[in-house]
Every structure is written in structure tokens, then in C-alpha cells.
Write a protein that binds this DNA or RNA. Structure first.
Length: 591
DNA sequence: GTGAAGGGCCAC
DNA sequence: AAACGTGGCCCTTCAC
């Protein structure tokens, strides 16, 4: 592909070019950078293209290694990037949005992300790749050469081929967007694509913001667990080697407590009837007869705390900001949920001893908001079940209210056991729970569990019907859809009953879990607009929860903006069931 | 030494 | 496959 491009090295040319391109509906957008993380490197080039006319802005010509944030001559570029129109087309737009966000101080206005579009179209197909080269080859049949991607973008003078490569990447996404847009439309994915695109910039900003962690607090917690761990490990070692006389005699053959194989052997030597797996849920029932099992579970708990949530979390703190800047994958799961890594801020233990270490910086406060039972409300909306909806509308404790309806007693007479049971059942239903599993988590016999499930679905006939239909649809249509239209295709072997059953459960769960993701993402876009220009910044999201940090002075207004954004987002999809958002203002991420 | 697989467990 | 869904991270084990 031959590309006409203009290298821009002076303010006047930049002003002219931005003026010229500002009337376009769409512009290809790309950046070339010296590193992968914007805090580590320099932003060298910004490219914009309408497909025929491409500009390559050399930022070194405006302020070499300097702070380009303050350079006035770049204002036309900032304006163009910030504007909702033209829409900026980029592949993995979060990357470029972070770089211009950090170095130019702008939030990219409208975006069309060709990577996300490709992910939505592939609908969870694990075999499809989503690099620019893969997507361009799949949708345009053109080859993209990435040879220059790793070249030195900090050289005084860039080579002709470097600049041409840079220009091509911005130009190619223009025809690519055309093809992807057609497919999005044909597949009914326009609405969900809009939601996804609109939360790219909020997520880019969130990653730049990072989440402040009090390192002292974290270390203190760790040292407590360390002390515990040493005692527990010693005791467990003693108990396990009791079965191997010579081991304790010579003190030599220490058992590796982290090795399932060695621990299982030792347990067998002690005469413990261990099941095929030594997972906690299987061992738990043995704990009352065999103290060693209780000790093992105790050990596992502290070991997990020390490894997954130990010193290593602090390795991710950026010394320049004192904050953790994790990586969020916008379509982390086929359901549309985010995933998070390095570190995974979505799996920090719920206990206050951990969460209180994540806090607001001096002078600031955290606003923590989460949807109350959002997945059950989505299920209520989908099923249209009047009784289930009424349990939400009544405004009473939902699980107690459900227990009352299932057991046929007044809410005031619901026992704690009944409530707890209804709660487990309510959660399980969202995953397509069966009697066997229900029995194991409640301690009921399978027979009793079956009866209660029958009673539950007799009470909520609409739920039963919707869930059955969703399961059947998953098998016949080999796909599921969320309220915003997100699509997940299911692959299974028709001769495998297990796979069919699994597909049915997926068909029940995906629309629910996925709609929850749709709602959260929509809320992020609304929130981003609502807090613009204020002290508030997004710092974390956990599936149905949003954490914002703001100045103490703006705590109240930020709480309102957060709650309103989340409520409005949910109400776009949930019409018949009330939405409840719990908001708390606190210095710490624990309540 | 490196990487994949398996087991286990944290979150929602 | 925990016959309950979605992730990521850590450890051991085993193959290369």
C-alpha cells in the first residue's frame, strides 16, 4: 500500500494540518514510543490519517526529551485528539490514549478500537488472534509489516522507512474500520461496540491514575501472617511426619508442604482417608476427625496470603507515583468482563486487613460504590418473573424476602438458616446450579436439595422458564447475547452430554454476567464525563464495583456523580427492577 | 534453564 | 467439570 504522508516538524504546518483534518468523520490514529509504559519513555510520533492524507508529527521537533505537556504549539493536536469528532481509529487504543494522556495531558475524545471490534466480532473464539497484522489480514487481506515496531524511535533523525511505517499504521486502520463497522452492524454489535469504545479512555486514564497503596500497612499485615505461617508450618510438619518415624527421628526428610503429592503421601501414612483431590472443599469435612487436616487448611490459607498477596504486590508499586498501575484487559472474558493483571486488583482478599492498605492519598478520600445484587436484578428483568421482581421492589432484605416466598412464611418469621439457604440458592441459580452441587454447599441431602430447587422454581416460574429457554437456546443457536447485544458463540461436541450440559449453563450465565459487564462499562463512560475537570479520578473496578479517589472537599459531589452514573447506566438496560447502588466515603478501601 | 500443565485458591 | 459461571497468580512437576 502506497501512502501519501506529510512529516510535521513545525508549529505552522501542524496548525494547518489539524485544521485540514478536523472536518473528517474518522481519523486513523497511532503513536510511536520509546517504551511500552508511558511513564518510562518518550512519545516520539503521533500519526493521524484519513486514509489518503496522513500526517506524522515529530514531537522531538517541538521539545526534545522535554515536557511536551506545556508546549503551546501542540494545542491544535490536543484539540483534535480531545474532540469527539473526528473519531480516532486505533488498534488497541488504550495504548495510544495512555501515551497522549500522560505526555500531552489530553483524554482522547471519540474512539473506534479495531482490536476491540475484532474481539467483539469473534465472539469469544479463542483461536482468533487480534494483533493489527492478524486483524488486517483477516478483514482486509493485506499484510502489515511490523519490522519497524521495535526500531529506535529516539534517534535524532528517523529513517524514511521508519516514518513510512508509522504513516502506514495510521492509514491502514481507516479502511479496516469500514470493514469492521459493516460486520459489527451485520452481527448486531453496534451498541455494545459503542459501549466498549466509550470506555477505552476512562480505562486508559484509570491505569495512568493507579491505585495508592500504603506500603507500610501492607508490610505490617504481611509480617503478622509470616509469624503465623512459621508456627503453623512447624506444627503441620510435626503432625505430618508423625506417620514417618525415621523422618522425625533424624529431622532430615522434611515434607514440602506446598507439594500436593508429598502432603497426600504423608496423610495416607497417617491413615487419613483422603479423597482424590486435596482441595479445601473436599478436605473440610475431614477436619473434625483429623486435626492434621485443619492444620493443613490453616497452612494453605497463610501460604496463599504470603505468596499471591505478599511482598510481590509491592513490586508493582511505581516508585515515582507510589501507586499500583495494573493492566486491565477490557474484554478479559468472553462474557465481556474485565480481567486484570500485574497485579490482579480484582482478587485482593475482601478482608479489611488487606483492603485497608489500599487508600486515598493525603488530603483525598475514596468513594467506593457497588451495585447491590446486580446479576439477580438482571435475571429478574430478563425473566419478567413478577414474584422475583416484587422481592426487589418491596425494598426489603432480598434474600430474606426470597426465603419467605420459597418457604411460604412471613418475612418476619424467616430464620437465619432459611435466609442463608435462600442466599446460596439465589447465587447458584445465576450459574445454573444443580441439586448435587446445592446439596454439597448447604449440607442438605441430594433429595432435600432437589425438593428445595423444585419449590424455588415453582415459586419463581418465570425464572425457571427463562433459564430453561436460555439453556436450550445456547444449544440450538450455539450462542448467547447480553442486553447490549454482546455475542458469545459456544462450541461443543453434540455427542458429549457433559459438554451440552456445560453449554446450557453457559447459556444461562453469559447473558447475565455479560449484561453486568455492559452496565459497568456504560457507567464508566458516564462517570468519565461527569467528573471531567474535577479532582476525581477512577482508581479501580471490580466487576460490579467502582472505586474513585477525589479531594475531601469534593467527596459529596463525587459520591453523587458516581451513584448517578451507575444508576443511569443500569437503568438503560433494567427497566422493571429497581437499581440499588451502595456508596461509601472512606479513606480506605474497606467498609 | 524455560515453559506448559495440573492443582489449588483469591475475587465477583 | 465440583454436574456452578468468569478470571489471574502461585507452586510443583515434568518435558524439552
Amino acid at each position: 500500500m502506497e501512502v501519501y504522508f506529510q512529516l510535521i516538524e513545525e508549529p505552522e504546518k501542524l496548525r494547518e494540518a489539524c485544521e485540514r483534518l478536523s472536518g473528517e468523520k474518522f481519523l486513523g490514529f497511532d503513536t510511536e514510543t520509546s517504551e511500552l509504559d508511558p511513564r518510562d519513555g518518550v512519545l516520539r510520533l503521533v500519526q493521524l490519517s484519513n486514509g489518503r492524507d496522513t500526517i506524522v508529527v515529530d514531537l522531538f521537533k517541538f521539545a526534545k526529551y522535554g515536557d511536551i505537556k506545556e508546549i503551546n504549539e501542540l494545542e491544535p493536536l490536543r484539540k483534535l485528539l480531545e474532540a469527539k469528532r473526528p473519531v480516532k481509529i486505533a488498534h488497541n487504543a488504550k495504548f495510544d490514549a495512555k501515551w497522549v494522556g500522560h505526555h500531552l495531558g489530553v483524554d482522547v475524545g471519540g474512539t473506534f478500537d479495531t482490536m476491540i471490534a475484532s474481539q467483539l466480532i469473534s465472539a469469544g473464539d479463542q483461536d482468533r488472534r487480534h494483533s493489527l497484522a492478524d486483524v488486517a489480514s483477516f478483514f482486509l487481506g493485506t499484510e502489515v509489516d511490523k519490522a519497524e515496531q521495535i526500531s529506535d524511535w529516539t534517534a535524532d533523525t528517523l529513517s524514511g522507512s521508519q516514518i513510512e511505517y508509522a504513516a502506514k499504521d495510521a492509514a491502514i486502520v481507516v479502511p479496516l474500520r469500514q470493514k469492521l463497522a459493516e460486520r459489527l452492524k451485520a452481527d448486531g454489535l453496534e451498541r455494545v461496540a459503542e459501549i466498549e469504545f466509550d470506555c477505552v479512555t476512562p480505562i486508559a486514564r484509570m491505569e495512568l491514575n493507579g491505585f495508592y497503596i500504603d506500603q507500610e500497612c501492607w508490610r505490617e499485615q504481611l509480617s503478622k501472617v509470616k509469624v503465623e505461617q512459621e508456627t503453623i508450618a512447624f506444627e503441620l510438619q510435626e503432625m505430618l511426619s508423625a506417620g514417618v518415624a525415621q523422618a522425625s527421628l533424624f529431622g532430615a526428610a522434611q515434607i514440602n508442604l506446598d507439594s500436593q503429592a508429598q502432603v497426600s503421601d504423608a496423610l495416607r501414612n497417617l491413615g487419613v482417608p483422603i479423597p482424590d483431590s486435596t482441595r479445601a472443599w473436599q478436605l473440610q469435612p475431614l477436619a473434625k476427625d483429623y486435626p492434621v487436616i485443619g492444620k493443613l487448611l490453616e497452612y494453605r490459607g497463610v501460604a496463599k496470603a504470603l505468596t499471591s498477596f505478599g511482598e510481590n504486590i509491592l513490586d508493582f508499586v511505581d516508585p515515582r507515583t507510589g501507586r499500583i498501575h495494573a493492566d486491565f484487559r477490557q474484554i478479559g472474558a468472553p462474557t465481556g468482563r474485565f480481567s486484570c493483571s500485574r497485579p490482579n486488583l480484582q482478587q485482593i482478599p475482601h478482608g479489611p486487613e488487606y483492603r485497608r492498605c489500599f487508600r486515598a492519598e493525603e488530603g483525598n478520600t475514596l468513594i467506593v460504590a457497588d451495585y447491590s445484587q446486580i446479576e439477580l436484578r438482571i435475571l429478574a428483568e430478563f425473566s419478567g418473573d413478577e414474584k422475583f421482581i416484587e422481592a426487589f421492589r418491596s425494598g426489603q432484605d432480598f434474600h430474606a424476602s426470597a426465603a419467605a416466598q420459597v418457604f411460604g412464611v412471613p418475612v418476619s418469621d424467616v430464620t437465619p438458616d432459611q435466609r442463608s439457604f435462600a442466599k446460596r440458592l439465589n447465587f447458584g441459580v445465576v450459574y445454573g446450579i444443580g441439586a448435587q452441587r446445592l446439596a454439597t454447599i448447604t449440607g442438605f441431602s441430594e433429595r432435600e436439595a432437589e425438593n428445595v430447587l423444585r419449590r424455588y422454581f415453582a415459586t419463581y416460574r418465570g425464572l425457571d422458564e427463562w433459564l430453561r429457554a436460555a439453556g436450550e437456546r445456547a444449544v440450538t443457536e450455539r450462542a448467547g447475547r447480553t442486553a447490549a447485544g454482546r455475542l458469545a458463540r459456544f462450541r461443543f461436541d453434540e455427542d458429549d452430554r457433559g459438554q451440552i450440559a456445560s453449554t446450557k449453563r453457559n447459556g444461562k450465565n453469559m447473558p447475565i454476567q455479560g449484561t453486568s459487564a455492559d452496565i459497568l462499562k456504560r457507567a464508566l463512560a458516564l462517570l468519565h464525563d461527569a467528573i471531567k475537570g474535577s479532582s476525581a479520578m477512577l482508581v479501580n473496578i471490580v466487576h460490579d464495583e467502582i472505586v474513585v479517589e477525589c479531594s475531601e472537599a469534593e467527596a459529596e459531589i463525587t459520591s453523587k456523580r458516581l451513584k448517578d452514573s451507575m444508576t443511569a447506566a443500569a437503568e438503560e438496560f433494567i427497566k422493571r427492577v429497581p437499581i440499588d447502588v451502595d456508596v461509601s466515603v472512606s479513606k480506605e478501601w474497606s467498609r
